[in-house]
Structures are given as structure tokens and as C-alpha cells.
Amino acid sequence: MQAWAPALRVIQIILSVAVILFILLQARSAGLGSIFGGTSAGSVFKTRRGVERLIFNLTVIFVVLFALVSVVMMLLPA
């Protein structure tokens, strides 16, 4: 199992960068259109659609994968 340790480290680094990027792509309490100069006219609650929903779902998936890889690395013998 020790042979997998370097590969798991690389996977964990890639996942961490991806999670950071996906989180930064999400605009807080605004739609994706507000990033490019649009306005969110007072809408506090709205459903995610299109690219926003995809980015949100990918963020959740990558966070879960990151957590699983972290747990597996923790369980590996030193």
C-alpha cells in the first residue's frame, strides 16, 4: 500500500486546487451573471440553473473526493 502514497498525494493536491477554483467561481448570494457585470435585483433566494448548478455540484463532488482521499492517506501506515 506504500506504493500508492505518492500517487495519493498528487491526487490530493489536484483535488485541493480544483476545490479552491470551484469555490472561487461561486459568487456569494448572486448569480453567475453578476460576475460579468449583471445585477441580481434583490433576489435573496433563487434556484441554481445551468452553469451555476454544475459548478455547485462539481464543488460538492470534489470536496467529498478530497475528504475520502484524506481519510485513506491518514489510514495508510507510516
Rank of each mutant, 00 (worst) to 15 (best):
S16G: 14
S16N: 13
S16T: 14
S16P: 06
V17N: 13
V17W: 07
V17R: 10
V17C: 10
V17H: 10
A18F: 04
V19M: 09
V19L: 12
V19R: 08
I20K: 12
I20V: 14
I20M: 14
I20D: 02
L21E: 05
L21R: 10
L21H: 08
F22Q: 15
F22H: 14
F22L: 15
I23F: 10
I23D: 11
I23L: 13
L24R: 05
L24Q: 09
L25S: 14
Q26A: 07
Q26N: 11
A27N: 08
A27H: 10
A27D: 10
A27F: 15
R28K: 05
R28Q: 01
R28N: 01
S29G: 02
S29F: 11
S29M: 02
S29C: 08
A30W: 05
G31D: 03
G31F: 06
L32C: 07
L32M: 09
L32Q: 09
G33D: 04
S34Y: 00
S34C: 05
S34F: 00
I35V: 03
I35F: 00
I35H: 02
I35Y: 04
I35K: 06
F36V: 01
F36W: 03
F36I: 00
F36R: 04
F36Y: 03
G37Q: 03
G37R: 07
G37I: 03
G37D: 02
G38P: 02
G38R: 13
G38Y: 08
T39C: 03
T39A: 06
T39W: 05
S40I: 03
S40K: 01
S40N: 11
A41Y: 04
A41W: 02
A41M: 02
A41P: 01
G42E: 07
G42V: 04
S43Y: 06
S43P: 04
S43K: 06
V44N: 03
F45G: 01
F45P: 00
K46S: 07
K46H: 08
T47E: 07
T47Y: 05
T47I: 07
T47F: 09
R48S: 13
R48N: 14
R49H: 07
R49I: 12
G50L: 04
G50M: 05
G50A: 09
V51K: 10
E52F: 07
E52D: 09
E52A: 11
R53V: 06
R53H: 12
R53W: 09
R53N: 15
L54Y: 12
L54E: 12
L54V: 15
I55L: 15
I55G: 04
I55C: 08
F56S: 15
F56L: 13
N57P: 01
N57E: 11
N57Q: 11
N57C: 13
L58R: 13
L58S: 15
L58H: 12
T59I: 06
T59A: 14
V60E: 12
I61W: 10
I61D: 08
F62E: 09
F62R: 05
F62V: 11
F62H: 10
V63S: 14
V63M: 12
V63K: 12
V64L: 09
V64F: 01
L65P: 02
L65E: 06
L65N: 07
F66W: 11
F66I: 07
F66Q: 13
A67D: 03
L68G: 10
L68N: 05
L68E: 08
V69R: 01
S70N: 06
S70T: 05
V71T: 08
V71M: 06
V71L: 07
V71I: 12
V71Y: 03
V71G: 00
V72G: 02
